[in-house]
Design a protein around this nucleic acid. Structure first.
Length: 503
RNA sequence: GGCCCGUUCGUCUAGCGGUUAGGACACCGCCCUCUCAAGGCGGAGAUCACGGGUUCGAAUCCCGUACGGGCUACCA
């Protein structure tokens, strides 16, 4: 039994300052599984420490960023049950929360860096840079910028700038900086050699900030204390630390999550089918299940507990139990977990879900649904116990809607064509006509006489009836199904199936 | 090429110097049973990537190697 132990309390850890974390998606697509997990961990960390969860939209790529994507991301986060204290639609005093609206911040931070001598213009063309890189690489792997323009004298620089010569602004990494060291709560002590640090570009020739610069300006201004993000940013961290330092600030804590991979061990992409949160919603996963699964993918509560609520996650989440190795997304385990949550739904809640599905499938109108509430609620437990995903509901209950049913060819061959099937149907017809009231107990009592009178095995007799009535070999329990279907339709369907059955 | 990260059952993980290497999913068997599920019980499945050290003792500490991944852009 997977069990629901009381969530273990988080280990005491050295998180004292008021925590401020952020999730900063780029609206170049909808929220995918990896981003969702990053958001969940940030959210859980903030909530668990009484901190603030900031949502910032990194929409600096005008080509691919869209308002629809932003909306889809917000919708996905809400669907998962995540709420943010500052950001789009929430406001906050550290805004704006869209990078495209923050150009003033990037400009004024650049002025600050210039004034302090921490940034300098670079006039090198991309061709020149490429050539330098090629040489450096051939000479043993040095790939950083060679600081040509850093050595230009002030007069030359102002003359070239005044002449309107295109230039970028680079960070002037202090000559004596030494190695960049930091401690990642997930991965431990990290060290990057000074030689590997180069004067990277802060501001492009068109005046727009680069990612490593914009992100730091924003994180600094938004007073972010813990940056929890994917480990594709691990190598960017030393660069960002240098920007914090150039700005005269103490860098926040950086924690890096490993990636989520597809079943083939490759980076999760469209090739793997569904990757967006909304596609999982549409396939019939419950938000609680997805949150639980993602929470478990790369983090463990105690090594034993696999089923937990968002509240329990918040209560026990800690960065030191996040695992360092990449995780493969296992849809089978998600399915199982989703089944657990579906079974936890009570009849009323499951009926609500079922109604939406039936209506969108055209099996039930909203008007009809009102009168059938009770009927649906008695159907609910029969179905909820048997599905792992909500999209399995309609196929399972379809036989209850409509007068007749089409008998699947395979079911007919496998069951009705077998000897005794017709005998069973005839006997069933016989006893069911007299059943009053037509409840599952009474139906069961009546049908239990069929094997006795016909000499057929119960399994054989009941399967024949099941196929006749539901059209398939797999269905919710027979007696309950017949009650829900009602006497008239039950008898009609048995009669209709008689000609197809072997004697 | 250089730098950085990772490597425990098929999958997600527990483990933080001494365990019969634990749990969950999936798988197999049995029970329950009108089908399918659910549930119960049990089973199989990991030479802890490999090779060296350190130690009385290593999955756990150190060093290499291999493999996988990331960064190395006027992408994010």
């Amino acid at each position: 039994m997977y069990g629901r132990h009381p969530a273990p309390a988080r280990k005491a850890c050295i998180v004292s300052e008021p925590v401020r974390v952020r999730f900063a998606p780029s609206p170049t697509g909808n929220l995918h599984i990896g981003g969702a997990r990053t958001a969940i961990y940030n959210w859980a960390f903030a909530r668990g420490h009484g901190g603030t969860f900031v949502l910032r939209i990194d929409d600096t790529d005008p080509e691919r960023s869209t308002e629809q994507n932003t909306q889809a991301i917000l919708r996905s986060l809400r669907w998962l049950g995540l709420d943010w204290d500052e950001g789009p639609e929430a406001g906050g005093s550290f805004g704006p929360y869209f990078q495209t609206q923050r150009s003033e911040s990037y400009a004024s931070a650049l002025e600050k860096l210039k004034a302090a001598g921490h940034a300098y213009p670079c006039f090198c063309t991309s061709e020149e840079l490429e050539a330098k890189r090629a040489v450096g690489r051939a000479k043993g792997g040095i790939s950083g910028y060679d600081r040509t323009c850093r050595r230009l004298d002030a007069a030359t620089v102002s003359a070239r700038v005044a002449a309107g010569e295109p230039h970028v602004w680079r960070l002037a990494v202090p000559e004596d900086r030494g190695d960049v060291l930091f401690t990642d709560p997930i991965r431990g002590d990290m060290s990057f050699a000074a030689e590997a640090l180069d004067d990277f570009v802060l501001v492009r020739s068109d005046g727009t900030p680069t990612y490593n610069y914009a992100t730091v300006v924003d994180d600094a201004e938004m007073a972010i204390t813990h940056i929890i993000r994917g480990d594709d940013h691990l190598s960017n961290t030393p660069r960002q630390i240098l920007v914090f330092e150039a700005l005269g600030l103490t860098p926040p804590t950086f924690a890096h999550l490993s990636m989520i991979w597809g079943a083939d061990g490759k980076r999760l992409s469209k090739r793997h089918g569904a990757t967006s949160v909304e596609s999982y919603r549409d396939m019939g996963y419950l938000p609680e299940a997805l949150l639980n699964y993602l929470g478990l993918l790369g983090w463990s509560m105690d090594g034993e507990t696999t089923v937990f609520s968002a509240e329990e996650l918040v209560h026990s989440f800690s960065l030191d139990r996040v695992s360092k190795n990449p995780a493969i997304f296992d849809e089978e385990k998600l399915d199982w977990l989703n089944g657990v949550y579906i079974r936890e739904l009570d009849a009323a809640a499951f009926t609500d879900r079922m109604l939406l599905l039936l209506e969108s499938e055209g099996l039930l109108s909203v008007a009809e649904a009102a009168g059938k509430r009770e009927w649906l609620e008695s159907l609910a437990p029969l179905v909820s116990e048997r599905v792992k995903r909500l999209d399995e509901v309609v196929p399972m209950v379809r036989f209850l809607f409509g007068e007749s049913v089409e008998i699947a060819e395979a079911a007919r061959d496998k069951v009705l064509a077998k000897e005794g099937a017709g005998t069973a149907l005839a006997a069933a017809l016989d006893v069911l006509e007299a059943v009053e009231p037509f409840t599952h107990d009474a139906v069961e009592e009546a049908l239990r006489t069929v094997p006795a009178t016909t000499g057929l095995k119960p399994k054989v007799a009941f399967q024949a009836i099941r196929v006749a009535v539901t059209g398939t070999t797999v269905s919710p329990p027979l007696f309950e199904s017949l009650e829900l279907l009602g006497r008239d339709r039950t008898l009609a369907r048995i009669r209709a199936a008689m000609p197809l059955a072997a004697r």
